[in-house]
Write a protein that binds this DNA or RNA. Sequence first.
DNA 1: ATCCTACCTCTTGCATACTAGTGGGTCAAG
DNA 2: CTTGACCCACTAGTATGCAAGAGGTAGGAT
Lengths: 239, 239
Amino acid sequence: MAKQPLISMRPESKGLSYDRPAASQIFGFIRDAIISMELLPGQMISETALAQQFGVSRTPVREALIQLSNIGFVEVLPQRGTYVSKFSMEKILEARFIREALEVAVVTQLATNPDEAVRLEAVDACEKIIADQKTAAADDDALAFQKLDDNFHQTLAGFTQYPRVASFIEAEKAHMDRVRNLSLHVGGQYKRILSQHAAIIKAVKTGSAEKSAAAMSVHLKDVYNILEVIPQEHPEYFI
Amino acid sequence: MAKQPLISMRPESKGLSYDRPAASQIFGFIRDAIISMELLPGQMISETALAQQFGVSRTPVREALIQLSNIGFVEVLPQRGTYVSKFSMEKILEARFIREALEVAVVTQLATNPDEAVRLEAVDACEKIIADQKTAAADDDALAFQKLDDNFHQTLAGFTQYPRVASFIEAEKAHMDRVRNLSLHVGGQYKRILSQHAAIIKAVKTGSAEKSAAAMSVHLKDVYNILEVIPQEHPEYFI
DNA sequence: ATCCTACCTCTTGCATACTAGTGGGTCAAG
DNA sequence: CTTGACCCACTAGTATGCAAGAGGTAGGAT
């Protein structure tokens, strides 16, 4: 009996390209499928099934799954199976803690950067993003808005010149994006998010480390407020 | 011709235990060998050689190496070889940035913890460690001192109740420990480190987030000061 | 009806074999 | 002596097969 494919193969991604390691490509596919909730929390994803679907052997799939387990997206239970991680309040709060620590450090460093040109460059780049976000909000385009939100935080992190900082923030943010993709509450938050982003940039512009850090803190705490309702709406995805 | 073993097999660790995945054990062995500078920066470590040495196949070794490359300890060059990462100022400063961000957040959270009992418990635990460190310093036991230093920072992080925070801090600290193990400058720093640790705990005790964060910042910046001399002493290990 | 046991199937962990690409060394041509 | 082409040894990437353990199920004993 033919089983349902675990991951829908979109036209543009039917196969794997030959010029990059298969394991790395598979890692990306599965990660995206998990973030977009195509693979649901608690769902079993066996190495064999995925291998057949990608048309490769178990080896690269297995290596991809090991990496996914490192970033907490799947859990490998020896001799029992591999499962998409469920949400837990603790893990989400942990991700928030790590993210806030890093992002506060990012804006603090930026705000106190003695080279004012760099600061202005960052402010300019972020203000452009905020302008685009206003457009997305006016169009009620939640997806575009969320991508620009990503862009905003990644741009800020990029100015540290420390690539791993940006990638850590991205990884921790991804856990939250997963939760957020459970529902589209985002719509009602456009205005608050926009004003918070603007407040962060304004504080950076004035060069105040304290105000920048505080503004970022407020923003992140607010974003995670949807955790008050989501677990009740989807208890099946929480531990 | 028999080649030199890459990793010296100490008596207590001749073989792998059977009750834990081999890949995970091998990961630990290689990581420790890299931190202790038994495997030198720039050195090639082939999967085949390691596999023979551990008496296993390439598969678990390979999986261990993938994980080590994730935390920046080795670099895998396809079809060319796997190498122990060299130091670079950028990477070390990046590790410091991440570590400082996290550790500052840790003491901030602890200092502002409304439950005073928790704060006192943490203070007590850390003061015990400081006392032990004083003993180690008096005995000029650099190794014990360093382990207690680890213990100090891990204990603080443990009070966040977020295990990944502690493990991130440990990982970032490891990069610095590698550098530090290049030479034993540590001896001359006992007093400064001790007083800085004491200052951190004192600030936490008073419940001041700002003072705690500042004390931690000062401590970390100071620790990384040996970077002023090490690269000149061992340029061969730096990019 | 309930519990225990044997077994069968599925899982991941590991071993082995093969593929393809890189780089060095050799040797011949200029 | 220099340079270029070829070959060979070695590398990581992937495929495949086997081992060992977990868990469900059927069937028999109580």
